[in-house]
Amino acid sequence: MYTPSIIAEAVVNGLLTGAVYALVALGLTLVYGVLHIINFAHGALLTCAMFAVWALSDGLGLNVYLTIPPLAVLFLCLGYGLQRWVIGPASHGDDGNTLLVTLGLSIAIENGLLAAFHADTRTLSGDAAFDVVELGPMLLSRPRLIGFGVAVLVAVLLWALLAGTDAGKAIRAVAKEKMGASLAGIDVRHIYALTFGLGCACLAVAAGLLMPTFYVNPRVGNAFVLVAFTIVVLGGMGSVPGALLGGLLIGVVESLGGLFLGESLGQAGIFVLFILVLLLRPAGLFGARA
């Protein structure tokens, strides 16, 4: 019953979903790689972004993909401000405090959303989710294809920023050598905030790509961040290519797991893979070995 074309379709679908997972993981791994903290507010911020997409798209009637550019800019600024004026000052340079501050922030955001929107689950109206494209023998979901394309585009843009601009080079410099960066005249607090902002901008894009096929409720971000965290560890903490490949891999494993074990057990495959990688390559696929 598992004909090659069914398996191929599952693999391709996995890649499409995985690219969006990778985007969520990219934000997480970027912040970890530069600030050396795990941002516990990542999930809550993703939820915020998804509500924002829903509000602009269903409330104001904007095309869902047109909500992405303004929300990406908004979340860049929001993330910048959060790190620069809330998380940074509140943690007094202590990483343990930063964890608590981001955790506190996530609780505050989640409860704020619960108060505003209640626990209801919302989806975009319209039937974009059932829009399919025929590709040879495969039937693929159009929103997922678009999601894949946009996620790859964002990854390329991010890579170009990190490799080719002074701001990107400063981000890489701060990631590994804070004191040397300060002495080169790089304002470390600015770079921290910029990195956090870029992480949030990734979430805004991911939200715009998820909403056409997914739903939003005040806790929805957590599920994605659990997967994203797995991807980050899998790819190597702080590694950008690791997050991208890890995301695609997880997408495929989840999709094949769903095919062979049934929809509800699909995610079990992720954790089996996770444990295998940790046993065989503890630093992750792309992580520097200790």
Binding site: D166, K169, A173, A175, E177
Partner: peptide, 26 residues
Amino acid sequence: IHVPEGRKIFPNMNVRENLELGSYRR
């Protein structure tokens, strides 16, 4: 401009990029 004890260069970047960042601010 302070060239610190222990060099504090950027190990994850190449020589040219390290030098370029020397003129990040000035």
